[in-house]
Design a protein around this nucleic acid. Structure first.
Lengths: 239, 239
DNA sequence: TCAAAAGTGTTCGACTTACACCCATGA
DNA sequence: TCATGGGTGTAAGTCGAACACTTTTGA
């Protein structure tokens, strides 16, 4: 298609853009030990061999770009049904040398303790990096991570998506620590409890923490159905 | 580059995506007579000849995608220095028949009363459509507009960008009407005044409305410098 | 019995909401 | 003088910040 392009200013159907290719790169967030982390992979080719970068790939002929991102994510982590959203396109002409390659940024929120994930990652050269300690990455991947973090900070305050980083069952303090880490602020335990419980988004379980050397906390679960009903009624999540 | 692609699962440098091309489409918002409108153009080729769609175009070799969007916008409207932001990529495999074309959505907020704009538009087949009365458009352009409106509603509440749709000098009621129209809600005059003035984002001018058949309102101006300073101090715009 | 985290209660001030009212001006 | 929007004031209620306190449990 590229070869057929005519360079006149006509509006012929074969006119097109001067783009060589377009890829997908995904920022995969995980939450471990109270720390927000990102999953990176080692590059295996060319000048950048051995350097770290975002996991990514190419779009196939008959899949939507969301499906492509979701497929790439599953190929790496073994997980499906994961929270995954598009960020935007990164398209600086010099982001990759020699070729003009755009990339569509995605970000995913995953539960670190899933068995499938652990099994899948031992097979790869992927590694978790603390968000506050990201090395120099290939291409513009540092910029993509910076952008994704800003975006995450916005989204996490406007929609109940943080839960995707926690186990199915979690305590209120775990949730608060998650917010503190993502937003890089300190919160008041009492006020946080009141606010989140008042929203009635969480289903309290008849279960408590186990194996902790202090009073065991009650476990809660996020209930998407409840949230959908509340949203229809005009409820607006906000933190 | 497409022709050189090898279809093996190797990670060769010439691997790539099965995308034929990528375009840019721009949702241009204007505010006129209290109504939010979008600028559409008539398609001039192929099956869709005569149908309406978003203005768009192609990316050139050495320009960033933001620059491409900004150039396309200027070619149509004659305006530069316009508020313009990327939305996201729309990439359904069937959004355009026969070819696999992605499009990067942008949205712009422009001042309707600029002379340059009026001069430029008389030369084109572009037309303003009320946001609540958009016809069936080519490709997935209705979806892009729907998305852009949702996005605008979010953004306008979190950042002082609404001003871009108003003249340089405006009254508080004009601003309130703008918010009412975009967010599709009713607001209280008194409370709106208090809130917006309390932010101290607006520079009050020693000037009043002219040629109105009622008490002339004071004019205000948005001051980007003030906003930048406030933002640095941790101020957070919110409506 | 101590440390550590779970969980409750209260106060204060700031902000939102709803509403009533007066002012200025051109037709 | 009336319609129209400009502009001010206020009372009630809600919400968030700050902080003090009690409870439970394993080590």
């Amino acid at each position: 298609m590229k070869g057929e392009k005519n360079d006149t200013e006509s509006t012929s159907i074969v006119e097109g853009s001067a783009i060589d290719d377009i890829s997908i790169d995904c920022v995969i967030f995980g939450f471990n030990d109270g720390i927000l982390e990102v999953l990176l992979v080692q590059h295996g080719e060319g000048d950048s061999k051995g350097e770290w970068g975002l996991p990514g790939g190419w779009i196939k002929k008959d899949e939507s770009i969301d499906n492509a991102a979701s497929r790439l994510l599953e190929e790496l982590t073994g997980l499906d049904n994961v929270f995954l959203e598009q960020l935007k396109v990164f398209g600086d002409p010099n982001r990759v040398s020699f070729r003009r390659v755009l990339t569509i940024g995605y970000y995913a929120l995953i539960k670190r303790e899933e068995d499938k994930l652990k099994a899948s990652l031992v097979l790869t050269d992927a590694k978790w990096f603390k968000i506050k300690n990201i090395p120099n990455l290939i291409f513009d991947h540092n910029e993509i991570i910076d952008y994704s973090l800003k975006h995450l900070r916005n989204r996490v305050r406007q929609a109940p998506i943080g839960f995707n980083l926690l186990p199915e069952k979690f305590t209120l303090l775990q949730l608060m620590k998650l917010y503190e880490e993502i937003l890089d602020i300190e919160m008041d335990k009492s006020n946080f409890r009141r606010k989140i419980l008042h929203m009635k988004l969480l289903k309290p379980l008849d279960e408590r923490q186990k194996d902790v050397s202090h009073r065991a906390a009650k476990l809660y679960q996020f209930d998407q159905e409840i949230y959908d009903i509340l949203t229809q009624k005009g409820f607006n999540f906000e933190f």
